[in-house]
Simulated assay, not measured.
Amino acid sequence: MSHGDFAAITFLLFAGGLLALVAGAFILVRGASLLALRLGLSPLVVGLTVVAFGTSATEMAVTTGAVLAGQGGLAVGNAVGSNIFNVLFVLGLAALITPLAVHRQVIRQEAPIMIGGAVLLIVLGLDGSLGLFDGSLLLGLLMAYTAFLVRQSRAEPAATGPDEYADTLQPAKAGRWDARLPAQLGLIVAGLVLLVLGSDWLVQAAVIFARALGLSEVIIGLTIVASGTSLPEVAASVVASLKGERDIAVGNVVGSCVFNLFGVVGLGAVVAAVGTGAALPLPPDVARFDLWVMLAALVACLPVFLTGREIARWEGGLFLGYYVAYVAYLVLAAQRHDGVQAFGDAMLGFVVPLTIVTLGVTMLRRAGR
């Protein structure tokens, strides 16, 4: 087989994996949403859990597949890189299309939980790995969070304000093929099968790319795989922004970040401990830089959300600029450029804190008007 044929097959494997992941996530979300509404859950709870978590099922599938394939760096890099991509690229792009409204519940509840999850992950990873206890703790917190959302919705339905998901998440109409329980269960199974197949193809192609380009699996996971597995979030948020459903664009990203922190990383650590008998390694570069970039991006969301309870276009552009700078750092690091250390120190020690302070001052000025 020639080099060109091998490259073409690898590209087809990668593209096929992405298509299978996106299709699987869409089918899974459709079936699970209809089933959840059938069971009496409100559209808001379905949006914050089934839809947000369903669009992150791609990250879970890829991370699990990478762990079982012995690619621990790719597994962690995918989860961390997806959160960075979600906040900086997805929110930034959606805000450039139209300023995004932020639901009061996201500001008071979901954003602090998201930031707390990032801090907890950093603390758990101080020893350089995530073991069975760490993964079980993260998964347990995810289940507790989901149960809390369901109880909150049922006990205080008025507390969350207008149900912004009601127009887009409707029960299946009577007589339609997907109104029946077997069809909804079939959609869920079909979605899961596509996710498993897609993740296997994508991991294989990503490892081949990494070796051919001389890049580490961690960098491939932080960039190519992370952006690829975040395509459902891109599609959901951009479409919601174009349709004027601005709350959904933000809620989808925040919910997905929470799921990545607790569900994706937690499951990866448990699978590594049970399936391979070893803890999930946390690559030193990720612990030293990427985890802190993720935390800084999540913390920057809070003053952005509070400035008039919307993400303005200039703030979206700022987020996109940060993502470009982050990718530039990864490229410099891959090439072992002499200026990579200074570039990284400038991002973490000066640019990001200055931005957070600027946003905080803007927030105080708006509050004082």
Rank of each mutant, 00 (worst) to 15 (best):
A312M: 10
N78R: 00
N83W: 00
V258C: 04
A69T: 00
L291H: 08
A240E: 09
G73A: 09
F14V: 04
P157L: 12
V304P: 05
P99V: 01
R180N: 12
G221V: 00
T146S: 09
A36K: 07
F14G: 05
S199A: 15
T276K: 11
V254I: 15
R336G: 05
Q152T: 11
A346K: 03
T55W: 05
A297N: 12
P283L: 07
A325C: 12
I311Y: 06
I113G: 01
P157D: 14
A334G: 13
D163H: 01
G117T: 01
G228T: 05
M60A: 07
L306T: 07
L34I: 09
E164D: 14
R365W: 14
V225Q: 06
I220S: 04
V225D: 10
L291P: 05
R151W: 14
V299H: 11
R313C: 10
A36I: 02
V80W: 04
G4E: 14
T146I: 15
R246T: 15
F262W: 13
F350A: 15
R38L: 06
L306K: 09
L149Y: 02
T10A: 12
A278L: 12
D127H: 09
Y326E: 07
L261W: 00
L359R: 14
V264I: 11
G186E: 03
R154F: 08
S237Y: 08
A144F: 11
V254C: 06
I115E: 01
L202G: 03
L34Y: 11
A144L: 15
A205E: 13
T358M: 12
G275V: 04
L359V: 11
K173M: 10
A94N: 08
T307C: 15
I113E: 02
F11D: 00
G214N: 07
A147Q: 10
G92F: 10
N78K: 01
F89D: 01
D163E: 04
L121P: 04
A212M: 10
M347L: 15
R369H: 14
G186K: 03
R288W: 08
L21K: 06
F148T: 09
F53V: 05
T55L: 06
R151M: 13
F26C: 00
Y322Q: 14
N86T: 06
A325Q: 09
P232R: 01
L96R: 05
R151Q: 15
R38W: 03
G47R: 06
R154T: 14
G228V: 03
F26Y: 10
T49V: 09
A346M: 11
M1R: 05
P43W: 08
S227E: 05
V238Y: 04
V207I: 13
R211V: 14
T64P: 02
T63I: 01
L126A: 15
A235V: 13
C257S: 05
A158G: 07
L332H: 07
L348I: 04
D200F: 11
L195N: 02
R38K: 14
A20I: 02
G308I: 00
S199E: 09
T58F: 03
L318S: 14
A300K: 06
L68E: 05
S256I: 03
T98Q: 11
L197N: 12
L187T: 10
L359I: 12
S237M: 09
D167I: 08
